[in-house]
Protein backbone atom coordinates (compact mmCIF):
# COMPACT_ATOMS: atom_id res chain seq x y z
CA UNK A 1 0.00 0.00 0.00
CA UNK A 2 1.46 3.35 -0.96
CA UNK A 3 1.40 6.37 1.30
CA UNK A 4 -1.33 8.07 -0.67
CA UNK A 5 -3.63 5.11 -0.48
CA UNK A 6 -2.93 4.65 3.20
CA UNK A 7 -3.73 8.29 3.83
CA UNK A 8 -6.94 7.94 1.86
CA UNK A 9 -8.03 4.92 3.89
CA UNK A 10 -7.10 6.58 7.16
CA UNK A 11 -9.21 9.59 6.20
CA UNK A 12 -12.02 7.29 5.20
CA UNK A 13 -11.86 5.58 8.59
CA UNK A 14 -12.11 8.98 10.23
CA UNK A 15 -15.19 9.79 8.13
CA UNK A 16 -16.77 6.48 9.12
CA UNK A 17 -16.12 7.28 12.78
CA UNK A 18 -17.75 10.68 12.31
CA UNK A 19 -20.80 9.16 10.68
CA UNK A 20 -21.07 6.55 13.43
CA UNK A 21 -20.85 9.13 16.22
CA UNK A 22 -23.51 11.22 14.45
CA UNK A 23 -25.68 8.17 13.87
CA UNK A 24 -25.61 6.99 17.49
CA UNK A 25 -25.45 10.58 18.79
CA UNK A 26 -28.67 11.43 17.01
CA UNK A 27 -30.43 8.68 18.92
CA UNK A 28 -28.60 9.59 22.12
CA UNK A 29 -27.49 6.11 23.11
CA UNK A 30 -26.05 2.97 21.64
CA UNK A 31 -23.14 0.58 21.20
CA UNK A 32 -20.54 3.23 20.49
CA UNK A 33 -17.54 1.36 21.93
CA UNK A 34 -17.62 -1.86 19.95
CA UNK A 35 -18.70 0.00 16.83
CA UNK A 36 -15.71 2.32 16.79
CA UNK A 37 -13.16 -0.35 17.61
CA UNK A 38 -13.77 -2.14 14.30
CA UNK A 39 -13.87 0.88 11.98
CA UNK A 40 -10.34 0.41 10.62
CA UNK A 41 -11.02 -3.25 9.86
CA UNK A 42 -14.27 -2.40 8.08
CA UNK A 43 -12.62 0.42 6.15
CA UNK A 44 -9.84 -1.82 4.88
CA UNK A 45 -12.32 -4.49 3.87
CA UNK A 46 -14.95 -2.37 2.14
CA UNK A 47 -12.64 0.18 0.51
CA UNK A 48 -9.76 -2.11 -0.46
CA UNK A 49 -10.05 -5.85 0.04
CA UNK A 50 -13.57 -7.04 -0.73
CA UNK A 51 -14.03 -8.13 -4.32
CA UNK A 52 -17.10 -8.15 -6.55
CA UNK A 53 -19.18 -6.11 -4.16
CA UNK A 54 -21.65 -3.71 -5.71
CA UNK A 55 -23.84 -1.27 -3.75
CA UNK A 56 -26.36 -1.37 -6.61
CA UNK A 57 -26.50 -5.17 -6.47
CA UNK A 58 -26.07 -6.02 -2.79
CA UNK A 59 -26.64 -9.76 -3.28
CA UNK A 60 -24.41 -10.13 -6.31
CA UNK A 61 -23.44 -13.74 -6.91
CA UNK A 62 -19.81 -14.56 -6.16
CA UNK A 63 -19.13 -11.44 -4.08
CA UNK A 64 -16.94 -11.43 -1.01
CA UNK A 65 -19.04 -11.28 2.12
CA UNK A 66 -18.81 -10.00 5.65
CA UNK A 67 -20.59 -11.45 8.65
CA UNK A 68 -20.52 -9.13 11.61
CA UNK A 69 -21.07 -11.70 14.31
CA UNK A 70 -20.77 -9.06 17.01
CA UNK A 71 -24.03 -7.76 15.60
CA UNK A 72 -24.30 -4.91 18.11
CA UNK A 73 -21.57 -3.11 16.14
CA UNK A 74 -24.08 -2.74 13.32
CA UNK A 75 -23.97 1.08 13.45
CA UNK A 76 -20.35 1.07 12.24
CA UNK A 77 -21.23 -1.25 9.36
CA UNK A 78 -24.24 0.93 8.50
CA UNK A 79 -21.97 3.98 8.23
CA UNK A 80 -19.76 2.13 5.76
CA UNK A 81 -22.70 0.82 3.73
CA UNK A 82 -24.31 4.27 3.60
CA UNK A 83 -21.03 5.86 2.56
CA UNK A 84 -20.59 3.22 -0.15
CA UNK A 85 -24.08 3.98 -1.48
CA UNK A 86 -26.00 0.86 -0.47
CA UNK A 87 -28.68 3.18 0.91
CA UNK A 88 -29.07 6.94 1.55
CA UNK A 89 -26.98 8.44 4.34
CA UNK A 90 -30.17 9.94 5.80
CA UNK A 91 -31.08 6.45 6.94
CA UNK A 92 -28.32 6.69 9.54
CA UNK A 93 -30.46 9.17 11.45
CA UNK A 94 -33.20 6.53 11.77
CA UNK A 95 -31.10 4.05 13.79
CA UNK A 96 -33.37 2.06 16.13
CA UNK A 97 -36.41 4.21 15.42
CA UNK A 98 -39.69 2.38 14.88
CA UNK A 99 -39.91 1.11 11.31
CA UNK A 100 -36.22 1.71 10.58
CA UNK A 101 -34.14 -0.35 8.20
CA UNK A 102 -31.22 0.01 10.59
CA UNK A 103 -31.86 -1.97 13.78
CA UNK A 104 -29.35 -2.12 16.62
CA UNK A 105 -28.23 -5.58 15.50
CA UNK A 106 -27.57 -6.55 11.87
CA UNK A 107 -30.53 -7.78 9.85
CA UNK A 108 -29.95 -9.07 6.32
CA UNK A 109 -33.62 -8.73 5.45
CA UNK A 110 -33.85 -5.07 6.41
CA UNK A 111 -30.53 -3.51 5.48
CA UNK A 112 -29.12 -3.64 1.95
CA UNK A 113 -25.54 -4.87 2.07
CA UNK A 114 -25.81 -6.82 5.32
CA UNK A 115 -24.78 -10.36 4.46
CA UNK A 116 -26.18 -12.17 7.49
CA UNK A 117 -28.46 -11.51 10.44
CA UNK A 118 -26.65 -11.46 13.76
CA UNK A 119 -27.15 -10.36 17.33
CA UNK A 120 -27.14 -13.44 19.52
CA UNK A 121 -23.40 -13.77 20.07
CA UNK A 122 -21.59 -16.67 18.50
CA UNK A 123 -24.21 -17.33 15.86
CA UNK A 124 -22.70 -15.28 13.06
CA UNK A 125 -19.56 -17.38 13.24
CA UNK A 126 -21.35 -20.58 12.22
CA UNK A 127 -23.32 -18.76 9.54
CA UNK A 128 -20.04 -17.42 8.14
CA UNK A 129 -18.59 -20.93 8.11
CA UNK A 130 -21.71 -22.07 6.25
CA UNK A 131 -21.28 -19.28 3.72
CA UNK A 132 -17.60 -20.16 3.25
CA UNK A 133 -18.53 -23.81 2.77
CA UNK A 134 -21.19 -22.80 0.22
CA UNK A 135 -18.53 -20.86 -1.72
CA UNK A 136 -16.37 -23.98 -1.69
CA UNK A 137 -19.24 -26.00 -3.15
CA UNK A 138 -19.71 -23.33 -5.81
CA UNK A 139 -15.98 -23.04 -6.38
CA UNK A 140 -16.51 -19.30 -6.54
CA UNK A 141 -13.17 -18.21 -5.13
CA UNK A 142 -14.97 -15.66 -2.95
CA UNK A 143 -13.70 -14.86 0.52
CA UNK A 144 -15.95 -14.74 3.57
CA UNK A 145 -14.87 -12.29 6.24
CA UNK A 146 -16.07 -12.66 9.80
CA UNK A 147 -15.72 -10.25 12.71
CA UNK A 148 -16.15 -11.64 16.22
CA UNK A 149 -15.85 -9.90 19.54
CA UNK A 150 -13.63 -10.77 22.46
CA UNK A 151 -16.48 -11.14 24.93
CA UNK A 152 -18.25 -13.08 22.20
CA UNK A 153 -15.36 -15.53 22.22
CA UNK A 154 -16.65 -16.79 25.55
CA UNK A 155 -19.52 -18.38 23.63
CA UNK A 156 -19.07 -22.11 23.04
CA UNK A 157 -20.43 -21.78 19.51
CA UNK A 158 -17.30 -19.86 18.47
CA UNK A 159 -15.20 -22.88 19.33
CA UNK A 160 -17.61 -25.37 17.79
CA UNK A 161 -17.25 -23.33 14.62
CA UNK A 162 -13.47 -23.24 15.13
CA UNK A 163 -13.23 -27.03 14.98
CA UNK A 164 -15.68 -27.24 12.10
CA UNK A 165 -13.90 -24.69 9.89
CA UNK A 166 -10.57 -26.43 10.44
CA UNK A 167 -12.06 -29.85 9.67
CA UNK A 168 -13.56 -28.59 6.42
CA UNK A 169 -10.39 -26.66 5.53
CA UNK A 170 -12.20 -23.37 5.06
CA UNK A 171 -9.21 -21.37 3.85
CA UNK A 172 -11.67 -18.91 2.31
CA UNK A 173 -12.82 -17.83 5.78
CA UNK A 174 -10.90 -14.95 7.33
CA UNK A 175 -11.89 -13.99 10.85
CA UNK A 176 -11.03 -10.84 12.77
CA UNK A 177 -11.30 -10.84 16.52
CA UNK A 178 -11.93 -7.35 17.86
CA UNK A 179 -9.79 -7.62 20.97
CA UNK A 180 -10.54 -4.40 22.81
CA UNK A 181 -10.36 -6.33 26.08
CA UNK A 182 -13.50 -4.81 27.53
CA UNK A 183 -16.89 -6.38 27.94
CA UNK A 184 -20.05 -5.23 29.69
CA UNK A 185 -19.10 -6.31 33.21
CA UNK A 186 -15.39 -5.56 33.16
CA UNK A 187 -12.18 -6.44 31.39
CA UNK A 188 -12.10 -9.78 29.63
CA UNK A 189 -9.35 -10.90 31.98
CA UNK A 190 -11.56 -10.10 34.99
CA UNK A 191 -14.70 -11.73 33.61
CA UNK A 192 -13.48 -14.82 31.72
CA UNK A 193 -9.93 -14.57 30.52
CA UNK A 194 -9.33 -15.41 26.87
CA UNK A 195 -5.57 -15.83 27.04
CA UNK A 196 -3.55 -17.38 25.58
CA UNK A 197 -5.79 -16.51 22.63
CA UNK A 198 -3.14 -17.08 19.95
CA UNK A 199 -2.29 -20.44 21.43
CA UNK A 200 -5.97 -21.37 21.58
CA UNK A 201 -6.63 -20.72 17.90
CA UNK A 202 -3.35 -22.37 16.96
CA UNK A 203 -4.54 -25.39 18.87
CA UNK A 204 -7.73 -25.37 16.83
CA UNK A 205 -5.67 -25.66 13.67
CA UNK A 206 -6.12 -22.10 12.39
CA UNK A 207 -3.58 -19.77 10.84
CA UNK A 208 -3.23 -17.11 13.52
CA UNK A 209 -1.83 -13.60 13.40
CA UNK A 210 -1.97 -10.89 16.03
CA UNK A 211 -1.79 -7.26 14.92
CA UNK A 212 -2.68 -3.70 15.82
CA UNK A 213 -6.32 -3.50 14.76
CA UNK A 214 -6.09 0.21 14.05
CA UNK A 215 -3.07 0.06 11.75
CA UNK A 216 -4.58 -0.27 8.29
CA UNK A 217 -1.28 -1.03 6.60
CA UNK A 218 -0.50 -3.86 9.01
CA UNK A 219 -4.05 -5.15 8.75
CA UNK A 220 -3.74 -5.31 4.98
CA UNK A 221 -0.54 -7.34 5.21
CA UNK A 222 -2.27 -9.73 7.58
CA UNK A 223 -5.24 -10.15 5.24
CA UNK A 224 -2.92 -10.83 2.30
CA UNK A 225 -1.08 -13.47 4.32
CA UNK A 226 -4.38 -15.01 5.35
CA UNK A 227 -5.58 -15.11 1.76
CA UNK A 228 -2.39 -16.90 0.77
CA UNK A 229 -3.09 -19.74 3.18
CA UNK A 230 -4.37 -22.99 1.83
CA UNK A 231 -6.38 -25.57 3.73
CA UNK A 232 -6.49 -23.54 6.94
CA UNK A 233 -8.99 -20.96 8.10
CA UNK A 234 -7.41 -17.74 9.34
CA UNK A 235 -7.92 -15.54 12.32
CA UNK A 236 -6.41 -12.13 12.80
CA UNK A 237 -6.45 -11.18 16.46
CA UNK A 238 -6.78 -7.41 16.39
CA UNK A 239 -5.62 -5.48 19.41
CA UNK A 240 -8.02 -2.57 19.49
CA UNK A 241 -9.23 0.24 21.70
CA UNK A 242 -12.88 0.31 22.59
CA UNK A 243 -14.62 3.50 21.40
CA UNK A 244 -11.49 4.42 19.44
CA UNK A 245 -11.81 8.04 18.30
CA UNK A 246 -14.63 8.94 20.71
CA UNK A 247 -12.82 11.18 23.17
CA UNK A 248 -15.46 11.18 25.93
CA UNK A 249 -15.20 7.43 26.47
CA UNK A 250 -12.28 6.04 24.46
CA UNK A 251 -10.92 2.96 26.18
CA UNK A 252 -13.62 2.96 28.83
CA UNK A 253 -15.71 -0.03 29.82
CA UNK A 254 -18.78 2.22 29.99
CA UNK A 255 -18.60 2.76 26.24
CA UNK A 256 -20.08 -0.67 25.46
CA UNK A 257 -23.57 0.78 25.42
CA UNK A 258 -23.84 4.35 26.61
CA UNK A 259 -26.06 7.39 26.53
CA UNK A 260 -24.56 10.71 25.56
CA UNK A 261 -25.97 14.14 24.74
CA UNK A 262 -25.76 15.97 21.44
CA UNK A 263 -23.23 18.36 23.09
CA UNK A 264 -21.00 15.44 24.06
CA UNK A 265 -21.33 14.06 20.53
CA UNK A 266 -20.32 17.44 19.09
CA UNK A 267 -17.32 17.67 21.41
CA UNK A 268 -16.29 14.15 20.31
CA UNK A 269 -16.60 15.11 16.65
CA UNK A 270 -14.53 18.25 17.20
CA UNK A 271 -11.83 16.25 18.98
CA UNK A 272 -11.83 13.64 16.22
CA UNK A 273 -11.37 16.25 13.51
CA UNK A 274 -8.54 17.87 15.46
CA UNK A 275 -6.63 14.56 15.68
Amino acid sequence: MDTQELKHLQNKAKEIRQLTIQEIGNLGLGHIGGSLSIVDILTLLYYKMMENIDPLDPRKEGRDKLVLSKGHAGPALYSVLADKGYFPKEWLMTLNQGGTNLPSHCDMNRTPGVDFTTGSLGQGSSAAAGIALAEKFKNSGATTYLIIGDGESQEGQIWEMGMFAAQYKLDNLITFMDYNKLQIDGTTSEVIDLEDIVQKWNGFGWFVQRVDGHDIEVLEEAVLKAKAQSEKPSIIICDTIKAKGFSPAQGLQSSHHMAFSKEVAQKALDDLLAE
Binding site: V67, M108, S125, S126, A127, L133
Partner: peptide, 16 residues
Protein backbone atom coordinates in the same frame (compact mmCIF):
# COMPACT_ATOMS: atom_id res chain seq x y z
CA UNK B 1 -22.07 -29.70 17.93
CA UNK B 2 -25.72 -29.09 17.14
CA UNK B 3 -25.68 -25.32 17.65
CA UNK B 4 -22.91 -24.92 15.10
CA UNK B 5 -24.65 -27.35 12.75
CA UNK B 6 -27.85 -25.31 12.65
CA UNK B 7 -25.81 -22.11 12.22
CA UNK B 8 -23.75 -23.56 9.37
CA UNK B 9 -26.98 -24.78 7.78
CA UNK B 10 -28.33 -21.24 7.95
CA UNK B 11 -25.23 -19.87 6.26
CA UNK B 12 -25.45 -22.51 3.54
CA UNK B 13 -29.11 -21.66 3.04
CA UNK B 14 -28.26 -17.98 2.58
CA UNK B 15 -26.24 -19.02 -0.46
CA UNK B 16 -29.07 -21.03 -1.97
Amino acid sequence: AEANMVGVASGLSSQG
